[in-house]
């Protein structure tokens, strides 16, 4: 049984109705998408700003109710957006570690909340549990009586991870967990996450804009563009032999030591306007291989080789 199964999940944000006339069509932040995450797996999710990765994440943890589709965690359907029901199964680690901690509560109070509300633990049980968790994320217990602003970004992010662990979830959604941190601290947090995953047999959804980080931590990677999945594949293959031209563009754009500086695309490139989406493949406007069919039909996600899926009418060879 997969840890997480998402089918036809989508989110359309309504737009305000003007004073006169009909409401304009909503903004499709996430177009219907389906994917499966196996237990113990890390699924990386990459994409540039506006690709819908944060909307997807918020739906997965129940902070946002989907417009269509289903979410199943370990076979249990979770269709109503009730974060408390989701909380015991799936937790969230936020991008900005400091602002994810209430500045006016002590770390202890923050840590105790899920234990008290989700598991109804008494004071003694909570103390033991917090001690265990803090031990496993390498935090000292003396931190418990301090306030969030007293911590550095790396420490605060570890507290955020500890809070997520306290709910004993099966899955953790990591939304850009290291992008607010300095590179030397990034590695500490990434390694901690890797250790926790094997220690607690967790399943991760790792969202990031940094391809190298995603590749380093993930088993499989989903590439999002303009609210759709354009490619899914094994982490070690997807950037080395991409099938979708957008994946290749991403991989070639990432600055790499030893690769000369070339402009990977020559055209002025703008993301398509979400208020006025083009018909067909949303990448067609930027794609060197685009033909007539690309501008008319949205390509479906199809298997291309072992373990790799891409949504493209003219997939890349190799």
């Amino acid at each position: 049984m997969p840890a997480l199964q998402v089918s036809e999940l989508s989110k359309t944000f309504d737009r305000a109705r003007p004073l006169f006339g009909k409401a304009p069509p909503g903004v499709r932040a996430v177009r219907p998408m389906s994917f499966v995450v196996e237990e113990g797996e890390t699924l990386g999710i990459v994409g540039e700003s506006g690709c819908g990765k944060s909307t997807l994440a918020r739906m997965l943890v129940g902070l946002l109710s989907p417009t269509t589709g289903h979410i199943e965690i370990e076979g249990k359907a979770l269709d109503n957006a009730d974060p408390a029901a989701f909380g015991r199964l799936i937790q969230y680690v936020f991008q900005d570690p400091i602002s994810s901690l209430n500045p006016r509560r002590t770390i202890r109070a923050i840590m105790e909340t899920p234990l008290k509300l989700l598991y109804g633990m008494d004071r003694k049980q909570r103390e033991t549990r917090i001690a265990e968790i803090f031990d496993s994320v390498n935090l000292r217990e003396e931190f418990l009586d301090r306030y969030p602003h007293e911590f550095s970004g790396g420490q605060a992010q570890r507290i955020g991870i500890a809070r997520a662990l306290a709910a004993e979830p099966r899955i953790i959604v990591l939304d850009e967990p290291v992008s607010a941190l300095d590179v030397s601290v990034q590695a500490q947090v990434l390694n901690l996450l890797a250790r926790l995953r094997s220690e607690f047999n967790l399943t991760y959804l790792f969202i990031s804009h940094d391809l190298a980080v995603v590749e380093a931590v993930s088993d499989r990677v989903v590439v999002l563009y303009f609210g759709s999945v354009v490619e899914i594949g094994r982490a070690e293959r997807i950037f080395n032999s991409p099938k979708h031209p957008y994946t290749r563009l991403l991989a070639e754009s990432a600055p790499v030591v030893g690769r000369p500086l070339t402009e990977p695309e020559q055209k002025g490139t703008e993301l398509p306007d979400p208020l006025d989406p083009p018909p067909g493949c949303p990448f067609a406007g930027r794609c060197p291989k685009a033909t007539e069919i690309c501008r008319e039909q949205d390509p479906p996600l199809e298997r291309m080789g072992e373990d790799q899926f891409a949504a493209c009418h003219h997939p890349l060879e190799g």
């Binding site: 550095s152 030397s184 990434l190 390694n191 590749e215 380093a216 993930s218 088993d219 991989a251 790499v256």
Partner: peptide, 24 residues
């Protein structure tokens, strides 16, 4: 050398990163 080691680079596949302990 440690800073270079702790930054993952694209194309290296899945790996453990060499973290620098402590803070500046």
């Amino acid at each position: 050398s440690r800073l270079i080691a702790c930054v993952p680079e694209l194309g290296g596949g899945r790996r453990k990163l060499e973290a620098i302990p402590g803070l500046p």
